[in-house]
Amino acid sequence: MMIPILNISTQALFGQLLLGLINGAFYALLSLGLAVIFGMLNIVNFAHGALYMVGAFCAYFLLNLFGLGYWWALLIAPIVVGALGVVIERTMLQRLAGLDHLYGLLLTFGLALIIQGVFQNYFGSSGLPYAIPPELQGGSNLGFMYLPNYRGWVVVFSLVVCLATWFMIERTKLGAYLRAATENPSLVRAFGINVPLMITLTYGFGVGLAALAGVLAAPINQVRPLMGADFIIVVFAVVVIGGMGSIMGSVVTGFMLGVVEGMTKVFWPEASNTVVFVIMAVVLLIKPAGLFGRTA
């Protein structure tokens, strides 16, 4: 069935819409992690893209070295990368407390260079294949389009994770402590809550989300040492557009920009690389604090 819209088949249109949603899911997971980390640590985690890549490699190693498949990877990779994050926070980021926020950016940029450089040395720049798990192979015909099951799963699962994170931070007691510690760490500490531990775990959780996104991306984008390098710049633009003030804001902005990017691929392919940056420029002109940001 073909309904031509501006000479573009519905299959192509919905196909790109789905790809856009998937990219949007990754934007949402990554910018969510960045926002959570920024809220607690006041650090823009430049290593986020590199740790997303490490997450994907974790899945690859688990499968090829230990024979543990996709579902195990979905559980183990975020824990491994989260633990790595805890080590990074305890040994390095913690020493930057009280310094200009820019030093956190510089330190994590250096970490990204190290991590990506090491992986590039051993794996070059080409992609390693990672198969879609058997349960999610194949696709369903929705009438207006063919939906590969795995892609549908990625969108739904990311959405669930994003909403769960939102719920945890905005609606639970732990989240309330977290938000309070963001506002006034010394006061929360005075109430006997271990804020440094909370900060460490927050960083671990944020990079764990990045690793989760990496595992989800592995069957779609292949596993490459530089898979997060350019991606993280787009995520930064997403963060600027959404503003880091709100959890839901990051999620909505992430999905929205993924879709806009997908649509641009249909109607004006040359601009698809830059459309997010153009939107960022427009948002800065109209609402400098970002769509969901509070002016600070």
């Binding site: 020493r95 310094l99 330190l107 250096g110 990204a112 260079l113 190290i114 450089g117 040395n121």
Partner: peptide, 21 residues
């Protein structure tokens, strides 16, 4: 040394920020 240059640069970055600002 290929990509090790990048790794060394990263190490210098981290060292400078932590100990040699």
């Amino acid at each position: 040394f290929g990509q090790w240059v990048q790794v060394i640069q990263g190490v210098i970055f981290v060292a400078c920020v932590l100990a040699f600002r």
